[in-house]
């Protein structure tokens, strides 16, 4: 009993909640130390009881599973959360992970699978089904591609930015560039900022070097 996984169950479906408690009684290594029918009730109890693992229904009244997980992540960071979800929706799973969940199990999964997930999450692993893992990897790849520095062919400097970079290469300061282009000095600063941001460079010199290496200055 001393080594048992201390589990909390939060689900508004009474039959499921009570039934899981009863079924888990047969597992020697899991002990249910508390249960709640709502998110706010669960939050109060979990903060007090400090279970090791909390099984949380995603669709509870007053505070849904994601909100509760966020709150627990802040108020009871040692509690590892498994979300019980209804649909295999990548965005929902991503929200759960962002909220701090360590596992996601569909209610369409079997009881045995749930028990294995509880054990895995208790061991410190993060857990979701192979199907969900595949869709998650796809989504992560999409997000990563949005953040990875773009290749030179992807980077599109505007005509004005090219003009600015050309004038920087001629050694003109912002004020002179502004006069030459009939724009405000602040606007030049904005262009320079945008150029450095787009090219992910640190300073004007790097921008000029970048432009030279790619023959951008000769095109002017």
């Amino acid at each position: 009993m001393a080594d048992s996984i201390r589990l909390f169950i939060a689900d508004d479906n009474r039959l499921l909640r009570e039934g899981l408690v009863t079924m888990l009684l047969e597992q020697d290594d899991i002990v249910v130390i508390g249960k709640a029918p709502s998110g706010s009730d669960a939050l109060e109890q979990i903060k007090r009881l400090r279970p090791e693992v909390a099984l949380i229904d995603i669709g509870m009244p007053d505070k849904d599973g994601i909100e509760l997980t966020k709150a627990l992540h802040q108020d009871a960071p040692g509690v590892r959360v498994i979300i019980l979800g209804m649909i295999d929706l990548t965005e929902e799973i991503m929200q759960c992970i962002e909220a701090g969940a360590a596992g996601y199990v569909l209610k369409e999964a079997s009881f045995d699978y749930l028990v294995e997930t509880i054990r895995s999450v208790h061991r410190g692993e993060s857990f979701c089904s192979p199907q969900m893992t595949a869709s998650l990897f796809s989504r992560i790849a999409e997000l990563a591609s949005e953040k990875i520095p773009k290749t030179q062919n992807d980077i599109k400097l505007t005509a004005r930015e090219l003009e600015v970079i050309h004038l920087i290469a001629e050694g003109l300061p912002n004020k002179a560039i502004a006069q030459k282009l009939f724009i405000e000095t602040q606007t030049v600063k904005n262009h320079v900022h945008n150029i450095l941001d787009k090219l992910q460079l640190q300073n004007r010199l790097e921008a000029v070097q970048y432009a030279r290496e790619r023959n951008l200055l000769e095109k002017k």
Binding site: L15, L16, G19, L20, M23, K107, E108, A109, F111
Partner: peptide, 16 residues
Amino acid sequence: SRPKMLSEVIKSMVEH
């Protein structure tokens, strides 16, 4: 009954 987890719970209750 659906989802499966609820169905298994009710089945377990009946079996007891």
